[in-house]
Simulated assay, not measured.
Amino acid sequence: MADDAHGEAVTSLPIGGNLSELRERTRDFLTPAKLGERQEANFILAISEAANNVLDHARTPGVLVLRRYADRVVAEISDEAGTLTDPRAGMTAPEVGSRRGYGLWLMRQMCDEVEITSGPAGSTVRLVMRCD
């Protein structure tokens, strides 16, 4: 973990097959943040879902970058495949009975902000949770 030029704490974690370890390391990073218990649980679940999407859909290396500010925490989940290209993905709930499509919708329900970007370097899902 390091501090960047703006004074916030930042860490980078590889996305591999062990999402349990990724969740635990994320929880450790978030501990100093002033998140409520429910906020922390929702944020970790959203990050885990985004990381799982990297493993399921991108099938390329992925990385989680976490930033902790005084008033918010930010997670950027990136992959090299760039298959997630719709910035509005997850804006509406999946069809009733659908077996897939809940992940991005749930992220949008659990986080204060969700942004999807893509380009030549791949796709990134940026999640923001404001501190209490």
Rank of each mutant, 00 (worst) to 15 (best):
D4G: 09
A5S: 10
H6F: 15
H6N: 13
E8Q: 15
E8N: 15
A9I: 07
V10H: 02
S12W: 01
S12R: 15
S12L: 06
G16A: 14
N18K: 03
N18Y: 06
L19M: 08
L19Q: 02
L19G: 02
S20R: 06
R23D: 09
E24C: 03
R25K: 14
T31Y: 11
T31H: 11
P32K: 11
A33I: 10
G36P: 01
E40H: 11
F43K: 02
F43R: 01
L45G: 05
L45W: 04
L45C: 06
A46R: 02
I47G: 04
S48H: 07
E49Y: 08
E49W: 04
A50W: 01
A51R: 00
V54G: 04
L55W: 00
D56N: 13
H57A: 12
L64T: 04
L64G: 01
L66N: 01
R68Y: 05
R68T: 11
Y69C: 10
Y69W: 13
A70K: 05
V74S: 01
A75K: 03
I77K: 02
D79P: 08
D79C: 09
E80M: 12
E80C: 08
A81Y: 03
L84V: 13
L84W: 02
D86R: 03
R88F: 07
R88T: 12
G90W: 01
G90T: 04
A93Q: 12
E95A: 14
E95M: 10
V96F: 08
V96N: 01
S98L: 08
R99Q: 10
G101Y: 03
G101C: 11
Y102E: 07
Y102L: 14
L104D: 02
L104F: 11
L104N: 02
L106V: 13
R108M: 12
Q109L: 12
C111S: 14
C111F: 00
T117V: 12
S118T: 13
S118H: 09
S118D: 06
G119Q: 05
A121T: 09
S123Y: 07
S123C: 12
S123G: 07
S123Q: 09
V125N: 03
V125I: 15
V125Q: 06
M129N: 01
R130C: 06
C131V: 08
D132Y: 03
